[in-house]
Structure formats: structure tokens, C-alpha cells
Simulated assay, not measured.
Amino acid sequence: MSSVPRCPAAHPEDPTPCDGPPVVTVLDASNAGADGCEHHAARLLASLASGRVYSLPDAPAGAAIRVFKAADTIAPFPWCEGAPRTQPSQRSHAENRRLRGWMR
């Protein structure tokens, strides 16, 4: 049984497949990074504090901004299903903005 290789940005516990070749690099606050497909790069970026995303030289136009926008709506560590997401650090940035609007 052979497995399809996944991009370096795919977390070992994330069961989802890549949506294409690596097109961006995701960097954390210490500048450690991983190249990834748009799907896994967005999931990784959503799981980092102070992460950044940059297009690779041969990336399609808009790849980094698509990853950035997708990450905004993804909860950190989305492969951890069933866990309560009650703290701001456990929710997506978009959900936290929505909830802050309700609290005012």
C-alpha cells in the first residue's frame, strides 16, 4: 500500500489531502517555515500565532492572499474535531471578530 506524499505544511494528524503542489511558504514568529499547498498552508497559518504567508516564485497569482483569507475563517488545529472551542485562541479570527461585535 503506497501513500501519496503530502506537502511539508500538512500536519501529520491532519487527514485531509493536498489540493495541489506547494505554492506558498508559511512562516511562524521565529521565521521557521514550511512550504505548502493552499489547503494545508491555510490550516497551518490558522494554527500559528503571528504567522505569515508568502507566495513561492512559480505560484499562481493571488495564492498567498487566498491562503491568508482562508486561514481567517479556520479554527486552529481543525483536525482536532469534537473539542470544545470556547476560548478565543481556539476559534478562528473571523469568529472572534463576530463574537466581539456581539459583546459590545
Rank of each mutant, 00 (worst) to 15 (best):
L99P: 00
P84H: 04
H39E: 08
G33A: 12
R104N: 09
V4M: 09
H40N: 06
P84S: 09
E13T: 02
A70F: 00
M1P: 13
P17N: 07
A29W: 04
P88Y: 04
A34K: 13
C7K: 06
V23N: 00
L56Y: 07
N96G: 11
N96R: 15
Y54P: 00
Y54S: 06
V53N: 05
L45T: 02
S55L: 00
V26A: 07
A63Y: 01
P22I: 01
A49I: 01
R43C: 11
S55E: 12
V24K: 05
R98L: 15
P60Q: 02
R98P: 11
P78G: 04
H39K: 08
A94W: 03
E81L: 15
P84A: 10
P57K: 14
E81F: 12
D19H: 10
A10E: 04
W102D: 06
T86M: 14
V23I: 03
A71L: 04
A61N: 08
A75C: 09
F77M: 14
S50I: 00
H40E: 04
H11P: 05
L45C: 03
R85M: 14
G62Y: 07
V26C: 08
P78Y: 00
P8I: 01
M1L: 15
S2V: 11
F68R: 13
G20I: 10
P76M: 14
P12E: 09
L99E: 05
A63V: 07
A94V: 00
R66T: 12
P21N: 15
A34D: 13
L27Q: 09
A10Q: 10
T25C: 13
A10R: 15
R100L: 12
N31K: 09
P78A: 02
R98V: 13
A83P: 00
R85I: 14
V26K: 05
F77R: 13
L45Q: 02
K69G: 03
D58K: 06
E38I: 02
H39I: 01
G51R: 12
H11Q: 06
W79S: 04
S3M: 14
F68Y: 07
